[in-house]
C-alpha cells in the first residue's frame, strides 16, 4: 500500500502499528480510482502512435493500472485526446466524451490537442480541445515521448489524489457535465454560440 493511504493525523498506538491502518474515505476512494484509470482506446494522430508505444512493453502503462484500453467509451475513465482535433472529428469526440460514465478525465496529449499545434492556422483544425472539453492535464510536446505521457498520467494521478468525494462535481445535484455536440455547417457551429450567431450578422473574417 502506498504511504498516502495512511492518515497521519490519527495517532495509532505503538503496539498496533503493525496491525492497524487508519485512513480516510477520500484517500481510499482516490487510491482505488487513481490505480485503475482505464483509458479509451482512441488515437487521433501521431500522438496516438506514441500512446500505443507507451502502452507497449518498454514503457508499460500496466505499472500504473492503465493497461486496459477500452474501445467503448462506456467502460472508460479517461480520454486521452492524442493528436490533432479536426472540425470533422470534433462532434464524434464530444459524443464519445458524453458517453463516458462519471468520474471521467480528459488528458490533452501533444501540442495539437492542447492548443492546435503546428496545424493551428489551418481551416479545419480546432485550436485546442479545451475549447470544448474540460481538460485535466495538458502534456506539451510534438509529439510527447512515451515518458512524457507517463509523466502526464502521473500528474493526473496526483490530481485524483487531491479530490474529495464531497466536493467533486459528479456527485453534486443538478450538475450535468454533458457538452453540447457541435454541428457541421459552412464551418463548425458550436450550439453554445447560437445566441451570438443569431444576434449579430456574421461576416467573413
Amino acid at each position: 500500500m502506498p504511504e498516502t493511504l495512511d492518515n497521519p493525523e490519527v495517532p495509532v498506538p505503538e503496539e498496533l502499528k503493525g496491525q492497524v491502518k487508519i485512513t480516510t474515505l477520500d484517500r481510499i476512494y482516490n487510491w482505488g480510482r487513481r490505480s485503475s484509470v482505464w483509458p479509451m482506446m482512441f488515437g487521433l494522430a501521431c500522438c496516438g502512435i506514441e500512446m500505443i508505444a507507451a502502452a507497449a512493453s518498454r514503457y508499460d502503462l500496466a505499472r500504473f493500472g492503465m493497461e486496459i484500453m477500452r474501445p467503448s467509451p462506456r467502460q472508460t475513465d479517461l480520454i486521452i485526446v492524442s493528436g490533432t482535433v479536426t472540425k470533422k472529428m470534433l462532434p464524434q469526440i464530444i459524443r464519445l466524451y458524453n458517453q463516458m460514465p462519471e468520474p471521467k478525465y480528459v488528458v490533452a496529449m501533444g501540442a495539437c490537442a492542447c492548443g492546435g499545434g503546428p496545424f493551428k492556422e489551418g481551416y479545419s483544425v480546432v485550436s485546442g480541445i479545451d475549447k470544448f472539453l474540460p481538460v485535466d492535464v495538458y502534456i506539451p510536446g510534438c509529439p510527447p515521448t512515451p515518458q512524457a505521457l507517463l509523466h502526464g498520467l502521473i500528474t493526473l494521478q496526483k490530481k485524483i489524489d487531491k479530490q474529495s468525494i464531497r466536493k467533486v462535481k459528479w456527485y453534486q445535484k443538478h450538475e450535468s457535465r454533458e457538452v453540447p455536440v457541435p454541428l457541421l455547417g459552412p464551418d463548425l457551429i458550436d450550439p453554445r454560440d447560437f445566441p451570438e450567431l443569431e444576434e449579430c450578422e456574421p461576416s467573413e473574417s
Binding site: G116, E121, S127, K131, G185, L197, E198, P202, S203, E204
Partner: peptide, 21 residues
C-alpha cells in the same frame, strides 16, 4: 498573442456573409 483572441467567436471559425441559422 493567441490568434483566437482576435477572431469574432474566439474560435477558428468563419461563416459566409449570407449564412443565418
Amino acid at each position: 498573442i493567441r490568434v483566437e483572441d482576435s477572431t469574432q467567436y474566439r474560435k477558428n471559425v468563419s461563416y459566409p456573409s449570407e449564412f443565418t441559422l
